[in-house]
């Protein structure tokens, strides 16, 4: 009886592993394709060559020739770091406030914040563009940073995570003489660091990969971000796909690095910061 049961489980496990392997392959395929593409020239890529070639260094050299790499990395990094810093700051304070100071008007306000999640960005683009133009921020990095600072999703994420922040810690801190802002800085922030790490990765990826909005508000080449530059390479009259793939790899590296460095905190943050 026991033997049959364990065989059954192994059979189920087998299918689970087959399914997971297939899904993993599906996820990783674009990355493999990207790396293979970076080592081949445009003709081979167009033919669908699926093996490594010998064009990698040539493609890299071409990429550095055609693109001011330090400038686009500086632009993207500046926008991403400022966005992360302020978005995490604003969203964590808002999430903490919504959870800790409860009242009926505040709950209504929170509902409105959540409702904004249901409006697609495409519907917001034109009014947002008009607003940004009216304050004279078109063709500035501030035009990219400002609209994303109070992110409804990150506020929601921090509020949900704050539910796991023990109320007694706040009480203990009050008895120890801390004011509310000091509780936030000295207790909440270090206790919730894995939540911050997870939110940082989410905001970092969203900001680093942001394409549509920068495309609309940025006009000068010297202000453009890495996604815009790679896209312009790909949409040239005779696109060099090997170079595009090198650019894509370079654009992916910071995100990968951040994820691998903060992997543990990210997973912990997703599971709940306070144990």
């Amino acid at each position: 009886m026991m033997k049959k049961l364990s065989l059954k489980l192994n059979f189920a496990d087998f299918f689970t592993y087959v399914f997971l392997t297939f899904m993993a392959f599906l996820s990783i395929f674009p990355f493999i394709w990207m790396v293979i593409g970076a080592t081949n020239n445009t003709t081979d890529i167009a033919k669908g060559k699926a093996s490594f070639g010998d064009q990698f260094l040539i493609n890299v050299a071409k990429f550095f020739e055609q693109v001011d790499v330090p400038l686009i990395f500086w632009n993207s990094s500046k926008i991403t770091i400022i966005s992360c810093f302020f978005t995490l700051g604003i969203a964590s304070m808002a999430g903490y406030g919504f959870e800790v100071f409860r009242s009926k008007p505040r709950e209504r306000l929170y509902t409105i914040v959540l409702l904004t999640l249901m409006i697609p960005f495409a519907a917001l683009m034109i009014p947002l563009f008009i607003s940004i133009a009216k304050v004279g921020l078109i063709n500035t990095h501030a035009a990219i940073i400002l609209p994303g600072l109070a992110s409804a999703f990150i506020i929601f994420y921090f509020r949900q995570s704050t539910k796991a922040f023990p109320g007694e810690l706040r009480d203990a801190a009050k008895v120890d003489g801390l004011k509310e802002w000091q509780i936030f800085i000295y207790i909440y922030l270090p206790v919730m660091k894995s939540t911050y790490a997870a939110a940082f990765i989410i905001v970092f990826m969203a900001s680093w990969n942001n394409y549509l909005w920068p495309l609309i508000v940025l006009q000068s080449n010297e202000l453009k971000t890495i996604t815009l530059v790679i896209s312009s390479l790909a949409s040239a009259y005779y696109p060099d796909y090997g170079v595009v793939m090198v650019g894509t790899i370079m654009a992916t590296l910071p995100t990968l690095a951040i994820f691998f460095i903060m992997q543990r905190q990210f997973v912990q943050g997703m599971l709940g910061a306070v144990k």
Binding site: E168, K174, V175, D176, V191
Partner: peptide, 29 residues
């Protein structure tokens, strides 16, 4: 203010600051 009442409180869940050592917890206030 609670900190100026001359009281100290021990909580049901202990409410120790998880990011601090025992020494830091005890000396924090």
């Amino acid at each position: 203010d609670p900190s100026k009442r001359g009281i100290a409180m021990v909580f049901q869940s202990y409410a120790l600051y998880p990011h601090m050592t025992v020494r830091q917890n005890m000396g924090f206030a």
